[in-house]
């Protein structure tokens, strides 16, 4: 009987039968056995014991942030819609809204836009990015 090649030896250690009926060389077989044992051994280090709780907490925080953002956007959209509706009503009754409204009228128009922008960029820019190295 011939000695096993490395390929055959590895297959034999993987639990597959030797096709040619060859026998393993003791030295090689021992080294491969040691190697397989070492490769199958789990690393000593691991993730922190409360890793799953940390992930769950992070997901809850993200969900909360997303819900807050949605609510704020809906509130801002409703405000804008009401404003547009009021302007529409006034123009329907032929009221010159531009001259009738106080000089700080633009605050009512640009305020909600600024509010939406702040909310949006807060979510996008403040959100931690794990790939950012210190």
């Amino acid at each position: 009987m011939k000695e096993m090649s490395d390929d055959e030896l590895q297959q034999w250690l993987d639990g597959k039968p030797s096709i040619h009926g060859n026998v393993p060389q003791i030295d090689d077989a021992e080294a491969y056995r040691n190697l397989f044992e070492a490769l199958d051994k789990e690393p000593e280090k691991g993730l922190s014991y409360n890793f799953s709780a940390k992930v769950a907490r992070k997901i809850k925080t993200e969900q909360k942030k997303n819900n807050e953002l949605k609510l704020n956007l809906i509130a801002a959209a409703i405000f804008m819609a009401l404003l547009a509706f009021a302007c529409g009503l006034l123009s329907l009754f032929k009221v010159d809204i531009i001259t009738k409204l106080p000089p700080y009228k633009w605050i009512f128009i640009f305020g909600p836009i600024a509010f939406i922008a702040v909310q949006y960029f807060d979510q996008k820019l403040v959100k931690s990015n794990i790939f950012k190295k210190p």
């Binding site: 490395d6 590895q10 030295d27 090689d28 080294a31 491969y32 040691n34 190697l35 070492a38 490769l39």
Partner: peptide, 9 residues
């Protein structure tokens, strides 16, 4: 594996 086996030997 072959490379690692040689180092292990």
């Amino acid at each position: 594996r072959k490379l690692l086996k040689e180092k292990i030997q």
